[in-house]
C-alpha cells in the first residue's frame, strides 16, 4: 500500500497545482471578457483572437479544474440514497463508482481525444474566423484533462481502499460530501 499511497500524494499535489492554474483562468477569462467590451466600445477595436482567448480559458477551467474538483469531492451527487449511508458504505460506493463508472469513461475519452488533437496539430489548424487563434492548444486540453482526471480517480481509489483496509492514508481524503454551491 505504501508506494500506492505515495503515488496518490503525488497525483493530489499535481492536480492541486492544476486546480490553482484553473482558478486563475477564472479571473483571466473575466478580465479578458470585460476588457474586450471596454476596448470594443471605447476605441472600436477588437479581434477574434481576444474573443477566442475567453473560451480557451473557459476550456482550461473545465479540463484542468475537474480533477481538483474530484479531489475536493465536489462533483454533485444525487444523495437520495447516498445521504442515508454510513461512511463505510459511502466509501464502497466510491470504490465501485471509480472502477466501473469513472475510469472507463475518462480513459476512453483520453484515448479518443488524443488523435483529435494530433490531427489538428499536424495540419496546423487555425480558426475559421478572421484573426482567430490556432486550435491545437485548446484541443490538447482535452486528452490532458482526461488523463489528469483518470490519475485523480486512481488516487481517490487508492485512498479509499486504504481506508477500507483499516490503514490511515497520509494523503488527504475527502469522504465527507457537501453539495456544491450553485
Amino acid at each position: 500500500m505504501r508506494p500506492l499511497l505515495a503515488f496518490s500524494r503525488g497525483v493530489d499535489s499535481i492536480n492541486a497545482a492544476m486546480g490553482r492554474v484553473a482558478d486563475w483562468f477564472v479571473l483571466l477569462a473575466c478580465a479578458v471578457s470585460a476588457g474586450n467590451a471596454f476596448v470594443r466600445y471605447g476605441i472600436s477595436y477588437s479581434s477574434n483572437a481576444w474573443l477566442e482567448v475567453q473560451w480557451y480559458f473557459f476550456a482550461g477551467i473545465i479540463m484542468l479544474g475537474a480533477s481538483y474538483t474530484l479531489f475536493r469531492n465536489e462533483h454533485v451527487r444525487v444523495d437520495l440514497v447516498y445521504g442515508m449511508l454510513g461512511t463505510r458504505a459511502r466509501i464502497w460506493v466510491d470504490v465501485l463508482g471509480i472502477i466501473l463508472f469513472l475510469l472507463p469513461a475518462t480513459l476512453l475519452l483520453a484515448w479518443m481525444t488524443w488523435p483529435f488533437f494530433v490531427d489538428s496539430f499536424i495540419r496546423n489548424e487555425g480558426s475559421p474566423n478572421a484573426g482567430g487563434l490556432l486550435r491545437w492548444p485548446v484541443k490538447l486540453l482535452m486528452p490532458l484533462g482526461f488523463v489528469l482526471l483518470s490519475l485523480q480517480g486512481l488516487s481517490e481509489l487508492v485512498k479509499r481502499v486504504a481506508l477500507l483496509r483499516g490503514e490511515q492514508p497520509e494523503a488527504e481524503v475527502v469522504v465527507e460530501y457537501h453539495r456544491p454551491d450553485q
Binding site: L70, H75, V78, V81, F101, L108
Partner: peptide, 18 residues
C-alpha cells in the same frame, strides 16, 4: 438506477451512456 447509487452525476451519466 445509476444516478440513485449516489456516485457523482457527471460520471454516472457517462457510465449509463457507455
Amino acid at each position: 438506477v445509476f444516478l440513485l447509487i449516489g456516485f457523482p452525476v457527471a460520471f454516472s451519466l457517462s457510465a449509463v451512456g457507455l
